[in-house]
């Protein structure tokens, strides 16, 4: 039987304005977690009922910990940010399907936008071969150094030009014009759509990690659906981001 685990918070700090890194202890979740999956955190504290879906950033099998990086975007994540080191959270996971990693692929293009960047860390840890990472932020970049530590080449774009090139991640891709066999991407929907289009023009298969407002987080309520193609744009079906995703092939998504 699956269950909601009690996980102790080992570390919790603000790493950039309104962006928090939380490390939780859970050997049960760690032993089966994959890059691109997420966990649902139950706040069970105040007015918010629904669990918060937070992507898994970094899995440490030796320590039995998960690193989660999240942005404070509303009341729920603000409540989460108030938890202190040593407190225990109720966590369900790992949830969903992660990125598809094939050992035959040697050249990887990894594209992150804003708070969609964290799950790409665990992905890059597991990719073998040449990895180029393209990151787009409004202002402050996060995790750039961590990607470099993992051996990836990192390119950054910021909208205000404070770091890297001035512009968005698509501007960056067009400027660098990388070559690869697979694209992995997580970020805002508009960016993912543009990445999918760019990948199609280049003839590179693209995986996108989608986000949607969720209720149950386990596939029962069908609250978090996205449209995917059966045969074409007109012949589509709803699929659950939590259970069937969050990673989909870009070509199957009806944007």
């Amino acid at each position: 039987m699956k269950k909601v685990y009690d996980c102790e918070i080992i570390k919790h700090k603000e790493i950039a304005p309104c962006i928090f890194m939380m490390e939780v202890l859970s050997e049960e979740i760690v032993c089966s977690a994959l890059a691109g999956q997420f966990v649902s955190i139950y706040l069970n504290k105040g007015e918010m009922l629904l669990p918060r879906p937070i992507s898994i950033c970094d899995i440490d099998k030796d320590k039995g910990t998960l690193k989660l990086i999240y942005g404070v975007v509303g009341k729920g994540t603000a409540e989460l940010a108030a938890f202190k080191t040593g407190e225990v959270l109720k966590v369900l996971g790992p949830v969903g399907n992660g990125f598809k990693i094939e050992d035959t692929i040697k050249k990887h293009i990894v594209i992150g936008g804003g708070i969609g960047t964290p799950p790409l860390i665990e992905l890059v840890k597991q990719l073998k071969g040449k990895v180029e990472v393209f990151l787009g932020f409004a202002k402050d970049s996060i995790l750039e150094e961590r990607f470099k530590e993992l051996g990836a080449t990192v390119y950054v774009a910021t909208e205000d030009g404070s770091m890297g090139i001035k512009g968005n991640v698509i501007d960056l891709l067009e400027q660098i014009n990388p070559d690869g066999d697979m694209i992995y991407s997580c970020g805002p929907k508009g960016m993912l759509r543009a990445v999918d289009l760019w990948g199609r023009e280049k003839g590179i298969k693209t995986q996108v990690s989608l986000e949607e407002r969720m209720a149950c987080g386990i596939g029962a309520c069908v609250g978090c659906t996205c449209k995917t193609k059966k045969k074409n744009e007109e012949d589509w079906q709803n699929r659950r981001v939590c259970k069937d995703g969050p990673v989909f092939w870009g070509e199957e998504v009806v944007w």
Binding site: L49, L50, A215, C221, G223, C224, T225, C226
Partner: peptide
């Protein structure tokens, strides 16, 4: 069914 977003959280409850 209807298009997404289909879920909104509210004080002590939710909308679907």
């Amino acid at each position: 069914g209807n298009p997404s977003p289909r879920i909104a959280e509210t004080y002590g409850g939710m909308l679907n």
